[in-house]
Deep mutational scan, measured.
Amino acid sequence: KRPMNAFMVWAKDERRKILQAFPDMHNSNISKILGSRWKAMTNLEKQPYYEEQARLSKQHLEKYPDYK
């Protein structure tokens, strides 16, 4: 399994927040909201998630050095 990218790292927690506020919302609508919010964020706001992506990628490479 591939490591999560920056968007997926961010969306994991954001999806939970949306589901808590709107428990009956369909997944497709949640995904649209998440995509819009991510696009509206600045690079500075996204930076911590890119850093986490890099950490996860490094960890994955160490754990699975032959992964293609």
Score class of each variant (00 low, 15 high):
residue 33 I to G: 00
residue 4 M to N: 11
residue 2 R to V: 14
residue 27 N to Q: 11
residue 29 N to D: 14
residue 14 E to L: 10
residue 41 M to W: 02
residue 32 K to S: 08
residue 58 K to G: 13
residue 27 N to E: 15
residue 28 S to W: 13
residue 48 P to E: 04
residue 11 A to P: 00
residue 58 K to V: 09
residue 25 M to K: 00
residue 64 Y to N: 14
residue 38 W to Q: 02
residue 16 R to L: 12
residue 47 Q to Y: 03
residue 47 Q to A: 12
residue 41 M to V: 02
residue 50 Y to R: 06
residue 41 M to I: 01
residue 46 K to H: 01
residue 65 P to W: 05
residue 61 L to E: 14
residue 57 S to T: 15
residue 31 S to A: 13
residue 49 Y to P: 04
residue 18 I to D: 00
residue 14 E to H: 10
residue 20 Q to I: 10
residue 57 S to I: 12
residue 46 K to D: 01
residue 6 A to M: 01
residue 47 Q to S: 06
residue 51 E to R: 07
residue 10 W to C: 00
residue 25 M to W: 03
residue 3 P to C: 04
residue 5 N to C: 11
residue 14 E to R: 03
residue 3 P to S: 11
residue 28 S to L: 11
residue 14 E to T: 10
residue 67 Y to D: 14
residue 17 K to A: 10
residue 53 Q to K: 05
residue 50 Y to N: 04
residue 57 S to Q: 09
residue 16 R to E: 15
residue 68 K to V: 09
residue 55 R to Q: 08
residue 67 Y to P: 14
residue 24 D to I: 04
residue 24 D to G: 09
residue 23 P to S: 03
residue 35 G to Q: 15
residue 65 P to S: 07
residue 53 Q to E: 15
residue 24 D to N: 07
residue 65 P to N: 08
residue 43 N to F: 06
residue 56 L to K: 05
residue 49 Y to G: 03
residue 7 F to V: 00
residue 41 M to K: 02
residue 6 A to H: 00
residue 26 H to A: 14
residue 31 S to E: 15
residue 20 Q to Y: 03
residue 6 A to V: 02
residue 30 I to M: 05
residue 10 W to T: 01
residue 49 Y to E: 02
residue 66 D to M: 11
residue 10 W to Q: 01
residue 43 N to K: 15
residue 12 K to W: 02
residue 48 P to W: 06
residue 11 A to S: 08
residue 43 N to H: 14
residue 44 L to G: 11
residue 1 K to D: 01
residue 61 L to W: 09
residue 49 Y to V: 05
residue 31 S to C: 07
residue 4 M to W: 06
residue 20 Q to P: 02
residue 50 Y to C: 05
residue 16 R to C: 11
residue 35 G to H: 13
residue 43 N to V: 10
residue 46 K to R: 08
residue 6 A to R: 01
residue 5 N to M: 03
residue 5 N to W: 02
residue 11 A to L: 04
residue 30 I to A: 02
residue 26 H to N: 09
residue 10 W to V: 00
residue 3 P to I: 07
residue 45 E to D: 06
residue 47 Q to I: 08
residue 44 L to K: 12
residue 42 T to I: 00
residue 21 A to Q: 15
residue 30 I to E: 01
residue 51 E to G: 03
residue 21 A to L: 12
residue 18 I to S: 00
residue 25 M to C: 03
residue 39 K to N: 11
residue 1 K to F: 08
residue 18 I to Y: 05
residue 61 L to A: 12
residue 51 E to L: 06
residue 27 N to I: 14
residue 51 E to H: 05
residue 20 Q to M: 08
residue 52 E to Q: 06
residue 47 Q to F: 05
residue 27 N to V: 13
residue 41 M to L: 08
residue 50 Y to V: 09
residue 5 N to H: 00
residue 53 Q to Y: 14
residue 53 Q to F: 10
residue 11 A to K: 09
residue 29 N to F: 03
residue 66 D to V: 08
residue 54 A to P: 02
residue 46 K to Q: 01
residue 6 A to T: 02
residue 58 K to Q: 13
residue 1 K to W: 08
residue 3 P to R: 11
residue 7 F to G: 01
residue 5 N to K: 03
residue 35 G to Y: 15
residue 48 P to H: 04
residue 2 R to Q: 13
residue 45 E to Q: 09
residue 57 S to C: 07
residue 33 I to Y: 03
residue 16 R to S: 13
residue 10 W to D: 01
residue 30 I to V: 12
residue 48 P to T: 04
residue 28 S to Q: 11
residue 41 M to F: 02
residue 26 H to M: 09
residue 31 S to G: 05
residue 7 F to Q: 03
residue 63 K to N: 09
residue 44 L to I: 09
residue 20 Q to V: 04
residue 52 E to V: 06
residue 53 Q to I: 14
residue 50 Y to T: 05
residue 37 R to G: 04
residue 57 S to W: 06
residue 19 L to W: 03
residue 25 M to N: 01
residue 39 K to M: 05
residue 52 E to A: 12
residue 37 R to H: 01
residue 25 M to G: 02
residue 21 A to V: 09
residue 23 P to A: 02
residue 67 Y to A: 14
residue 48 P to F: 04
residue 36 S to P: 03
residue 2 R to I: 14
residue 30 I to G: 00
residue 33 I to A: 03
residue 29 N to Y: 10
residue 46 K to I: 01
residue 26 H to K: 14
residue 5 N to L: 02
residue 36 S to W: 06
residue 37 R to W: 07
residue 67 Y to G: 15
residue 50 Y to S: 04
residue 18 I to M: 09
residue 26 H to W: 05
residue 52 E to D: 07
residue 57 S to E: 15
residue 27 N to W: 13
residue 8 M to C: 06
residue 59 Q to A: 13
residue 55 R to M: 08
residue 35 G to D: 15
residue 57 S to F: 08
residue 61 L to C: 09
residue 26 H to C: 12
residue 15 R to K: 07
residue 43 N to S: 10
residue 25 M to P: 01
residue 30 I to L: 08
residue 14 E to A: 10
residue 25 M to Q: 03
residue 67 Y to T: 14
residue 32 K to N: 06
residue 67 Y to M: 10
residue 66 D to A: 08
residue 28 S to I: 08
residue 8 M to P: 01
residue 10 W to P: 02
residue 25 M to R: 01
residue 28 S to R: 12
residue 5 N to S: 13
residue 55 R to P: 04
residue 17 K to D: 01
residue 12 K to G: 07
residue 18 I to G: 00
residue 37 R to V: 05
residue 38 W to R: 00
residue 48 P to Q: 08
residue 67 Y to K: 14
residue 25 M to L: 09
residue 15 R to P: 00
residue 51 E to F: 04
residue 15 R to L: 09
residue 22 F to H: 15
residue 46 K to T: 02
residue 44 L to P: 05
residue 52 E to T: 06
residue 15 R to T: 09
residue 8 M to H: 14
residue 1 K to G: 14
residue 33 I to V: 08
residue 60 H to K: 13
residue 41 M to N: 01
residue 49 Y to N: 04
residue 8 M to L: 07
residue 20 Q to R: 09
residue 12 K to T: 14
residue 12 K to D: 08
residue 36 S to M: 06
residue 35 G to L: 12
residue 37 R to K: 10
residue 58 K to N: 10
residue 11 A to V: 02
residue 6 A to W: 00
residue 64 Y to R: 11
residue 11 A to N: 06
residue 21 A to K: 12
residue 59 Q to S: 12
residue 22 F to G: 05
residue 66 D to H: 03
residue 66 D to F: 04
residue 61 L to G: 14
residue 33 I to C: 09
residue 7 F to I: 00
residue 58 K to I: 10
residue 23 P to W: 00
residue 65 P to C: 06
residue 14 E to M: 14
residue 66 D to E: 10
residue 15 R to G: 06
residue 66 D to G: 11
residue 4 M to T: 14
residue 45 E to A: 05
residue 29 N to W: 10
residue 32 K to Y: 07
residue 57 S to V: 12
residue 4 M to K: 13
residue 65 P to F: 02
residue 41 M to G: 01
residue 1 K to Q: 03
residue 12 K to S: 08
residue 7 F to A: 00
residue 66 D to Y: 11
residue 46 K to E: 02
residue 57 S to M: 07
residue 17 K to V: 05
residue 8 M to R: 12
residue 35 G to A: 14
residue 17 K to P: 00
residue 6 A to Q: 02
residue 15 R to A: 07
residue 24 D to T: 10
residue 25 M to T: 06
residue 65 P to D: 11
residue 4 M to A: 12
residue 33 I to S: 02
residue 5 N to T: 13
residue 67 Y to H: 05
